[in-house]
Amino acid sequence: MTVLRILFWVVLQALIFNGINVFGSEITPQLHLFAVLLIPIQVDRFVWLFGCAAAGLALDICTGTYGLHLLAGVLLGAAIPTIYRAFAPRDGYEVSDRPTVHGLGFRWVLLQTFTCSVVYCIAVESIASFQFHLLSAAVWRGLMCAVLTTVLVLLLQYLVLRSSKKSRN
């Protein structure tokens, strides 16, 4: 189910969201992260790594940006275990915890989504620029993209996901 969901959102990203350019046609929301960040917290770190890499590669193939999203996906997949540890509740994650606003609460999802989006979007923009003198502009575009992605992912969390459990916060 998770794999199908990721594939569905990767295709949506390629067909629809990549055509959305905000703020002077340079900022594109990376909404396939919505599905990627729904991978259960309890999985092995290899699953994160290969899951993010595979999603990135699929998006590369669908959009013709070969290697760009794969590299950003690998960086995100490698960073996610650390990010999740940093935002873990005081008594750690429970087996039934889901990475949703209905599971771990709005604040946790906001912090997690924004941090992951920052990593991914800055990686995408920096690799796409590939020039040191363009790095500051790439980081700025990456931050804008991360803010936009976070807002939309949070909206999707409320609109798409059903509440199956009370928030811990």
Binding site: Y66, G67, L71, L75
Partner: peptide, 29 residues
């Protein structure tokens, strides 16, 4: 994975990119 991704990206931006484009360009297109 980083090595594989970098190789793919470099190939895409270098002179040898055509083979990959021939293989997957139709899907993206």
């Amino acid at each position: 994975l980083l090595g594989f991704g970098s190789a793919l990206y470099m190939q895409h931006h270098g002179p040898g990119r055509s083979a990959w484009f021939h293989t997957t360009g139709e899907i993206a297109g």
